[in-house]
């Protein structure tokens, strides 16, 4: 199972994402922003970071990169694509998901272990969770406030496209506590928190069992491998 991980200039978490893919049992394939060739990957991860220095708007220039033109086309054809943090911003700037992400309401960069509720388990990236499962994965962003028109919000709620919602604390002022969105087909998922930082005991969030033992993020990656096996 080959899962591509894209590196843009300014991407930070590509190595962590590739490591998460390997820990889930997949083969990570590096994809380069300037290369339109997707090297026959079965799925793509757009990792976190500050692509193109967040110039113009977060994710806006990455959305125009050569590799994204291939990814947009493939995603519209059903290729599973996961956008994490800056990757989520790239997905909204590419119009693969609706709305936008603006500076956190309180204007500070935030880094914390964040509780989330998984509200959709019929996507390529969340099928290993149970419906309404509570998970904890790290969140770290400066511009993570989700915003959309009333009409779009109504549609997202009505069609069940809000895949993940913040629990207890809304860390960035996101409308309707939105942490992650899916598309209608379920192959595209974007979220602000970072599942790739909660995939290995000893390096994840604290849990009631032990310090840094949280691995809730791994299921995003085992989900896509499961969906590809059963495809």
């Amino acid at each position: 199972m080959k899962i591509g991980v894209v590196t843009f200039p300014g991407t930070l978490d590509d190595r962590d994402a590739a490591r998460a893919v390997r820990l889930a049992g997949g083969q990570a394939v590096s994809l380069w922003h300037a290369d339109t060739n997707l090297h026959k990957v079965d799925a793509v991860v757009l990792p976190g970071g500050f692509s193109y220095g967040d110039y113009l708007r977060c994710g806006a220039i990455a959305a125009q990169a050569p590799v994204m033109q291939s990814i947009i086309k493939a995603a519209n054809g059903g290729l599973p694509v996961l956008g994490i943090c800056n990757g989520f911003q790239v997905l909204v700037e590419s119009h693969l998901l609706p709305g936008g992400l603006i500076r956190n309401e309180h204007q500070h960069f935030i880094c914390r272990d964040q509780k989330l509720i998984v509200e959709s388990t019929t996507t390529a990236w969340t099928n290993q969770f149970t419906l309404n499962q509570e998970i904890t994965i790290p969140l770290k962003n400066g511009e993570g406030g989700y915003i959309a028109t009333d009409e779009t919000l109504k549609r997202l709620e009505g069609e069940g496209l809000i895949a993940l919602r913040y629990k207890e604390v809304n860390p960035n002022g996101s409308m309707n506590d939105i942490a992650g969105l899916r598309n209608e087909r379920g192959n595209v998922l974007g979220l602000m928190p970072h599942p790739e930082h909660a995939v290995e005991p000893g390096f994840g969030p604290d849990t009631p069992v032990a310090m840094r033992s949280g691995t809730d993020g791994l299921k995003f990656f085992t989900s896509v491998i499961n969906s590809l096996v059963n495809a």
Binding site: L56, R57, A60, Q64, V92, E93, G99, G100, I102, I147, A148, T149
Partner: peptide
């Protein structure tokens, strides 16, 4: 379509 994002 590029220099601005109509949502914001």
């Amino acid at each position: 379509n590029f220099l601005s994002n109509g949502v914001i």
